[in-house]
């Protein structure tokens, strides 16, 4: 087992934990953090697996860089929306459906 593969496996574990949180948590900020956790896991898999198979490779590094930028943008958007939603309704989760319909 190479260290690269270890990274990849750690990435898979992170994805799992993140997915768990994403599906089960209700608080919007926690879900957002869980999303970031999945993201980091995927990036680790992307780099680790590629380097494990093909040796040092600049391409995944460049990809992950782009991926991080995208993730930051998504996180920023989500934070803005969550904050505004909290201001308007006082809720921190989407669970209580019927109330905000009106």
């Amino acid at each position: 087992m190479s260290p690269d593969l270890l990274y990849a496996l750690a990435g898979v574990v992170l994805c799992g934990i993140g997915l768990f949180g994403f599906l089960l948590l209700e608080h919007l900020l926690r879900r957002l953090l869980a999303f970031n956790l999945i993201g980091s896991g995927v990036f680790l898999v992307l780099i680790g697996l590629a380097q494990h198979r093909n040796g040092p490779d600049p391409v995944p590094q460049a990809l992950v860089l782009t991926g991080i930028v995208v993730a930051i943008a998504a996180t920023a958007l989500a934070v803005v929306l969550i904050r505004r939603y909290y201001h308007l309704t006082g809720h921190t989760s989407l669970a209580d459906d019927g109330e905000a319909q009106s």
Binding site: C15, F35, V45, L49, R53, A78
Partner: peptide
């Protein structure tokens, strides 16, 4: 977002392969 990440995981596996 979840959909994109699951897709990206698939991309990572394919690139690794």
């Amino acid at each position: 977002l979840l959909g994109s990440l699951v897709y990206l995981l698939g991309v990572a596996l394919l690139y690794g392969q």
